[in-house]
Design a protein around this nucleic acid. Structure first.
Lengths: 159, 159
DNA sequence: GCATGAAGCTTTAGGCTTGAAATAATATCG
DNA sequence: CGATATTATTTCAAGCCTAAAGCTTCATGC
């Protein structure tokens, strides 16, 4: 196998990847800002929705640290978002049995109800915004992005 | 052609689109946070980089409003970012001939120099982060995203 | 027991982001 | 010309976000 020995840089490939990243970022921001705007009409935000979604998936509650690691945001950040959810009666912080440092965050019944409404709208909006993407395209794109994601999280240990 | 007459909702398709969106958002955030962290090492941020990139593409300068419309962020936002760039001597605001409301923002020589360094690192980082994406994959993904983007910005006028 | 370090959470400072309100200058129209 | 609307920009309040520092509690080892 005559492979090229560590070419300095493949300029065209580098540019192609840069284009891909810029396009990816652009699409993400476009959808994100549209969703943010629509959520605003329901008195909510994307970060709050994310937290509520995580809590909804964990009916037994999540500790603050678990929440921040699931959402991949800083712990200080979660504090603020949960503060607001708590103020509005959508979530509660309860002590954890046997560890006075930790707090278990849970959705209240009102929080569950609110989330159901938000989630239904959210899915419908995404379905609308990506309304021209066919099933095949969606699955294919999804698979490709899955590969990119995998490589991002588990970089090949290259020579 | 016996097509199904306006099915209420294609649930599986809706879910597929939702998965696609969540995956897209996840990948974007992953790359974004990595880039943010690395830029921090160069005393910069992604928003500043974006502004500088826009200014670099427009050697004759951009008005604040043009800047905010190119970057698709609010005008109040641009004010703050340009403020900081100006403080650090990387950009200037100069009056516009014949319109005392407007200001032309330009990179200073120091700004141009700083941007060159940032841009080189930025491209190398993206190239590294997407290092497992082949030329073919990059181009193909890019094309597909281009289609999604197009549809987002020009929604089909459906019956 | 008790010191030392780790774990869980909040606070803080600084920057980004938006939408809305405030200012100032220009443009339009009667 | 003068009233009104539009345009360019900034300011403001509120929320999001991070890294770093601080506080409390737990675990470990002596």
């Amino acid at each position: 196998m005559t492979m090229i020995e560590r070419p300095e840089v493949d300029l065209a490939l580098s540019k192609a990847r840069l284009r891909l990243w810029l396009r990816l970022l652009g699409v993400a921001r476009l959808v994100e800002s549209e969703l943010r705007e629509r959520l605003r009409g329901l008195e909510s935000t994307l970060p709050r929705f994310d937290v509520m979604a995580a809590l909804h998936r964990a009916p037994d509650g999540l500790k603050m640290t678990e929440l921040s690691s699931v959402l991949r945001v800083s712990n200080g950040n979660v504090t603020g978002i949960v503060d607001r959810l708590e103020q509005e009666g959508l979530a509660t912080r309860t002590p954890v049995e046997g560890d006075r440092r930790a707090l278990l965050v849970r959705l209240t019944p009102a929080g569950v109800e609110s989330f159901a409404v938000l989630a239904a709208h959210h899915e419908a909006w995404v379905n609308e915004l990506l309304g021209d993407v066919t099933r095949e395209e969606a699955d294919h794109l999804n698979e490709q992005l899955q590969v990119v994601r995998h490589h991002l999280m588990h970089p090949e240990t290259k020579a």
